[in-house]
Design a protein around this nucleic acid. Structure first.
Length: 281
DNA sequence: GTACTTGTTAAACT
DNA sequence: TAGTTTAACAAGTA
């Protein structure tokens, strides 16, 4: 599942290759996957690539923005004109066969390179909005977990006003943006805090550990190119490696790296939650 | 065939 | 009113 590190990895790669190119055409193979008026897209130069929360932003010369949310199974793949394997930049061989049955949108650029939006479950989307609408799109999000705005004073203030579990609190995008299930589970293991604890019951030290651990696992995710669990791949079709560094996520029945106790899985707020019943108090 | 998976939001509920 | 819970979305896997 693409969370902040996975989306950041894709955005970083697109930033290397897209700016300066012009959008020649867009093929919408699934209506549900595209929102907005596609006419504002044609013949527009790509100015810059950004990321906010789990959304990739592509700024166009006419000051419209493409916003891309991968949700759970989305992929964004960049394929150069030669479609060479390993031609300059390493690329997975299957991207040469795109589009495939999960391709929903294809952007063709002026130099004949393509950006393929694949999405197995069709929850993701690409929106084309004007500059004035961009802030609206992000109005309900809290600060990105890896930003300076995600300070301890902010985190503690929000935590005091809530009674949900710390696990649900971390997944609440209106508090902090970018954290999904993988990194929420790992952050709580690293912080040695039980996912069942109510946020307003955590003391200052525990809250500090949770915030620090959250920033830490997210940074590790970025440094390792994301977690390729389920469908995630980078813009070149290659996997990240965070899945090899996972602390508890999907490790039910295995030993906790910290204390050796068997990792358990239970549902919290309807979501699978992996934790160590011994060292996460 | 049934249960389960998840990011986000809308609706339902307290 | 606002915080919390649940359902819904979709398509694949176990």
């Amino acid at each position: 599942m693409p969370e902040l590190p996975e989306v950041e990895t894709i955005a970083s790669r697109l930033r290397q290759v897209l700016p300066g190119k012009t959008v020649a055409s867009a093929t919408i193979m699934k209506e549900k996957s595209f929102i907005g008026d596609v006419k504002h897209l044609y013949n527009q130069e790509i100015i810059s690539i950004g990321r906010r929360a789990k959304i990739i932003t592509i700024q166009l010369a006419n000051n419209y923005y493409l916003l891309i949310h991968l949700k759970m199974t989305g992929q964004l793949l960049y394929v150069d004109s030669q479609r060479r394997i390993g031609g300059g930049h390493p690329t997975a061989d299957w991207v040469a066969a795109l589009p495939n049955k999960h391709t929903r949108i294809v952007l063709t650029l002026s130099d004949k390179t393509n950006v393929f939006f694949n999405d197995q479950r069709i929850f993701g989307w690409i929106k084309l909005v004007s500059a004035s609408d961009v802030s609206n799109e992000f109005s309900s999000y809290g600060p990105d977990i890896n930003s300076v705005e995600a300070s301890f004073s902010y985190f503690q203030k929000k935590a005091k006003a809530r009674s949900v579990s710390i696990k649900q609190f971390l997944l609440d995008g209106s508090v902090l943006a970018g954290i999904g299930n993988i990194y929420a589970c790992d952050a709580l293991n690293l912080a040695q805090v039980s996912p069942f604890r109510s946020v307003n019951d955590l003391d200052t030290d525990e809250l500090q550990r949770v915030l620090h651990a959250s920033k830490s696992v997210i940074q590790r995710g970025i440094d390792t190119g994301g977690a390729s669990i389920e469908n995630y791949v980078g813009a070149d079709g290659l996997s990240g490696t965070y899945q090899h560094h996972v602390l508890v996520y999907k490790r039910e029945g295995q030993d906790c790296y910290n204390c050796g106790t068997t990792i358990r899985k239970e549902k919290i707020g309807g979501r699978g939650t992996y934790f160590c019943p011994n060292c996460q108090k």
